[in-house]
């Protein structure tokens, strides 16, 4: 009789999905939550009106592999760097993924600042799931 209990060998990615600050458009993030669930991931859904502090606290407590922020309020150039700074201050190296409405000219600047990837409204379910997977793989 083996002494150790059998480990769960399936890798279960845990992902936080949240909206930062004042932004009430949560239709998209709910669809993404469902897409990631159907891709076999565990989604910790924080929903609306989160702060960088509340997301950092949740990331520590839930020991997540990635954080997805949905942004539809044109605040991405301020809020995404804020989030990255908060993660860095907490010494958490967790990939940050931005989804939502991001103009083309902002894409590269966001990536340059350290956002792992940006997903727009045209992204297919497969693209969403694969982007999250490769962001997690890239962070390892």
């Amino acid at each position: 009789m083996s002494d150790a209990s059998a480990p769960d060998t399936t890798v279960r990615h845990r992902v936080i999905l949240a909206k930062l600050g004042l932004d009430g458009h949560d239709r998209g993030i709910r669809v993404v939550a469902r897409i990631l669930r159907d891709a076999g991931m565990e989604v910790i859904y924080l929903g609306l009106r989160q702060t960088t502090d509340s997301i950092v606290a949740a990331a520590e407590e839930e020991d997540v592999d990635a954080i997805g922020l949905s942004m539809h309020n044109a605040g991405h150039m301020t809020l995404a760097p804020d989030m990255l700074a908060a993660l860095e201050a907490a010494e958490l190296s967790i990939p940050l993924i931005v989804g939502g409405i991001v103009p083309d000219e902002d894409l590269q600047p966001l990536l340059d600042r350290g956002v792992a990837c940006v997903l727009g409204p045209g992204a297919s379910a497969e693209e969403v799931a694969n982007s999250v997977r490769s962001a997690i793989a890239g962070a390892r």
Binding site: R12, D38, G40, E42, Y45
Partner: peptide
């Protein structure tokens, strides 16, 4: 609960707790 089909899950209990807790 996890989805019996994909093994994924949407864990949404925090949204009912966080606001008050924080």
């Amino acid at each position: 609960p996890s989805s019996p089909l994909t093994g994924g899950a949407i864990l949404g209990d925090r949204i009912r707790m966080d606001d008050r807790v924080y």
